[in-house]
Nucleic acid binder design. Structure first.
Lengths: 147, 147
DNA sequence: TTGAAAATATTGAATATTCAAGAATTGAAG
DNA sequence: CTTCAATTCTTGAATATTCAATATTTTCAA
């Protein structure tokens, strides 16, 4: 009897693959909803983080919304053109730029939040309340243990 | 006392966000290992799927390795240049192209598999055996329930 | 205080991905 | 049969992302 070796196990059994697959699917669904407002998922993330009303530096934002620094800069450029957010130089550290959400951004963010909540509720229905919260817990732990 | 409304919950509590964050982190780690052989994660996936020795059509492959069709075509072009894989027209349906792994591809795939297994073992150590298998199970269910 | 190193954000060129259109083949209805 | 729609893959142009280099400001040690 051959020993079961991980090297030969199908890709569908790798955690990295399962995460990628699940992420792709859930993200696709969310994308579909947000496209009603013509906004990519990343912009929703940005608006949501900024909607606490505080100024957030680019570096901080990049980490929070899971984007590389230059990618974020260019996305913010577009959002500034659309007057959803605006830049202010940090008075305490002039290397930094603080990002703020505009009134127009707040209005859009509300609409997007409700579309996103729609999706979460759809997941709860088909996947179950218990599984969902258990999955969230495990993901949080995984993220913590990876730092 | 204000009602706790999902619309205002921080982004870190959304399943879509947790999945994206976990995926990004685990993928980053895997990327780091595979970079030892100078191979992107997607190419490892392709080689792994093809390493069953059978021919796989482009459409089938695209689904299995989580890539859009045109993106896969261009990645396969590179891998053909590197003689890791090769194309054969499907004799039963000449619209299709069957992809096969080459001997060189097989050798590379073995090295990559062992790097990937290293990572899985590293996760098992820091995150735990039980959590990992439970997380995998939940992810599989989520994926199933999304179809 | 000054000068070198570190931190922060942006830019431009190189790469990669995506969208829409095209080419080839098959299926199937009339 | 034949023609028209559907399937499969590729291509080219438009977009987006990334890498490396740059500019600015701050920090901190000498």
């Amino acid at each position: 009897m051959a020993k079961p070796s991980k090297e030969n196990s199908p890709i569908t059994e790798h955690l990295a693959y399962l995460l990628a697959q699940a992420n792709r699917e859930i993200n696709r669904q969310l994308e579909l909803r947000l496209s009603k407002e013509g906004v990519p998922v990343e912009q929703w993330r940005i608006l949501k983080v900024l909607s606490d009303g505080n100024g957030h530096s680019m570096g901080e934002l990049a980490g929070a919304v899971l984007l590389n620094h230059p990618t974020l800069t260019k996305m913010i450029d577009r959002m500034v053109s659309d007057t959803l957010v605006y830049r202010v130089q940090d008075p305490n550290d002039r290397r930094k730029v603080l990002m703020f959400i505009s009134d127009r951004g707040k209005v859009l963010c509300k609409k997007l939040n409700s579309l996103a909540v729609d999706q979460e509720e759809h997941i709860l229905e088909s996947y179950g309340d218990k599984s969902t919260s258990e999955l969230k817990r495990l993901l949080e732990n995984l993220i913590d243990s990876s730092n």
